[in-house]
Simulated scan of single mutants.
Amino acid sequence: MSYSVTANYYLRNLYGSNKDYIIGSTRLQASNASVVSADSKALAKGAKKMMSLDYGSYATDDDIENAMLGNNIKAFIDTYNNTIDSASDSDLKDIKKLVSKMKTLGKEYEEELEELGITFDDDGYMTIDSSAVENLDNKKFESVFGEDSDFTKTVRSLARKLYKHIDASI
Rank of each mutant, 00 (worst) to 15 (best):
S2W: 00
N8F: 10
Y9K: 08
R12G: 06
N13I: 00
Y15M: 05
S17L: 10
S17I: 11
D20E: 15
Y21C: 09
Y21T: 07
Y21N: 07
I22D: 04
I22A: 04
I23Y: 01
G24S: 08
T26R: 12
L28P: 03
Q29H: 09
A30Y: 07
A30M: 14
A30P: 14
S31I: 13
A33V: 14
A33C: 11
S34I: 02
V35D: 01
V36I: 15
A38F: 02
A38G: 10
A38T: 06
K45V: 10
M50W: 03
M51P: 01
S52G: 08
L53N: 13
L53G: 11
L53C: 12
L53S: 13
G56L: 13
Y58K: 13
A59L: 11
A59R: 15
A59E: 15
D61E: 15
D62W: 15
M68N: 14
L69W: 03
G70M: 13
G70C: 12
I73N: 09
A75P: 02
A75W: 03
F76W: 14
I77A: 09
I77D: 01
I77N: 02
D78Y: 06
D78K: 00
T79N: 07
Y80G: 06
T83R: 02
I84A: 01
S86C: 04
A87R: 01
A87N: 01
A87D: 02
D89L: 10
D89G: 13
L92G: 00
I95F: 04
I95G: 00
K96H: 12
K96A: 15
K97M: 13
K97H: 08
L98G: 03
V99P: 01
V99G: 03
S100E: 13
K101I: 10
M102T: 02
K103G: 02
K103V: 11
T104G: 05
L105T: 05
G106D: 12
G106Y: 07
E108G: 09
E108P: 00
E112Y: 14
E115N: 15
L116G: 03
F120Y: 14
D121Y: 01
D122Q: 13
D122P: 01
D122W: 00
G124F: 06
G124Q: 04
Y125D: 04
M126Y: 04
T127A: 12
A132N: 02
L136A: 04
L136S: 02
D137N: 15
N138A: 05
K139Y: 07
K139L: 12
K140H: 02
V144T: 08
G146H: 08
E147Q: 07
S149W: 09
D150N: 08
V155G: 03
R156F: 05
L158A: 03
R160K: 15
R160E: 15
K164H: 11
S169C: 03
S169R: 06
I170L: 11
